[in-house]
């Protein structure tokens, strides 16, 4: 079996998310260098604050301001920070219960090494220089020496109520995310793509129903069986159906209008799709006979053009629509 194909695949998206009133106040507060929590009906203070009580599911809206200092409740030493994490030098992940809060906030803790970190240690917020209303407005936590460790960490500051009102509140966040993959299409599609680079269309035949799939995906979806017998089809084919594209796609250097069609290659059991060129868009029709056009060095056909043969009879492709 030839070497399987692989290619880098980057999946990247900027998620735009709106905020509820509690989240908005919390993230706007971070921008203004203060930390807000939310009170539950049984008197607990949740930091980071949520819109609904995690126990009762009750809507909660009473905000309080807690201290920017707190106590580590658990931690983990990260000696090899990953690309998008808060610090690019070794740091501790920590859950920190801020003074006045009953729950802990996850963030990075900047410390010289694992020996300098322990559960119960006192820390304080290090604010980011540029703040936009995001959890990353807290750059990280840093050690803070204000006397003996308090395992509980509470009672140092009684949280004061806060209206949650700010000038120019943050109402949404844009969370960018990028993941880098190395994609492999597997056995059947590797064989197809390699043959295509040699200007051959090679599909695979189902051992049961004998249908030839182009491009092959490795299985016959009707029979649920693996396909493996390779069958060369085309190069000519028949337009089974088509549409006229009138809107220019971003980053696509094709003049509109153009025709995008389903093309049943001769010998194939289903149609693939491609652009039709070499003929005015309004003269493309079902049954039109076409052949692929290759450009220099291309691994796949640029488009399909009419062969000049008479149109195919409808009955020859009706099952392939």
């Amino acid at each position: 079996m030839p070497e399987v194909l692989k290619a880098p695949l980057v999946v990247e998206f900027p998620f735009t998310r709106s905020l509820g009133p509690v989240q908005s106040a919390f993230l706007t507060g971070l921008r203004e260098r203060l930390v807000l929590g939310v009170r539950t009906s049984d008197g607990r203070t949740l930091v980071p604050p949520v819109e609904y009580d995690p126990v009762t599911a009750e809507e909660i809206r009473d905000l309080v301001e807690v201290a920017p200092t707190g106590t580590v409740t658990t931690w983990a030493w990260n000696h090899a920070p990953r690309r998008d994490q808060p610090l690019d030098t070794p740091f501790a992940w920590a859950l920190v219960r801020l003074d006045g809060a009953d729950t802990a906030l996850l963030h990075a803790l900047d410390a010289p090494g694992p020996d300098a970190v322990h559960t119960g240690m006192r820390v304080r917020v290090r604010w980011a220089g540029e703040r936009t209303g995001a959890i990353t407005d807290i750059a990280c936590f840093e050690p803070y020496d204000d006397g003996p460790d308090a395992p509980d960490g509470r009672g140092r500051a009684e949280p004061a109520t806060h209206t949650g009102e700010f000038d120019d509140p943050v109402t949404g966040i844009v969370a960018t995310a990028r993941l880098d993959y190395t994609y492999s299409p597997g056995r059947a599609q590797t064989a197809y793509i390699n043959a295509l680079a040699e200007h051959r269309n090679v599909g695979e035949r189902c051992p049961s129903c004998r249908k030839v799939y182009v491009p092959p995906r490795g299985a016959c979806p009707t029979c649920g069986l693996a396909t493996s017998e390779q069958v060369e089809v085309g190069p000519g084919g028949t337009v089974t159906t088509f549409c006229i594209v009138n809107i220019k796609a971003k980053n696509l250097d094709i003049e509109v209008p153009y025709v995008y069609a389903h093309i049943a290659l001769d010998g194939a059991g289903l149609a693939l799709h491609g652009r039709i060129g070499g003929i005015p868009y309004d003269q493309v029709r079902m049954g039109l006979r076409v052949e692929p056009v290759w450009t220099e060095g291309a691994r796949y056909p640029d488009h399909y053009r009419p062969t000049g043969e008479p149109d195919a009879d409808y009955d020859t492709y009706r099952e392939l629509l």
Binding site: F15, R17, L19, Q23, L27, P48, T74, W75, A76, W77, N78, R82, R83, D84, Q85, P86, W93, A94, L95, L105, L106, H107, A108, T119, A134, I135, T136, I173, A175, A177
Partner: peptide, 20 residues
């Protein structure tokens, strides 16, 4: 996605917090 994902705490890091 609001408070945690922007920090990219990976699966081993979170399990390590639990282990500690």
């Amino acid at each position: 996605p609001y408070y945690v994902a922007p920090l990219w705490p990976d699966s081993v890091a979170l399990a390590a917090l639990q282990a500690q």
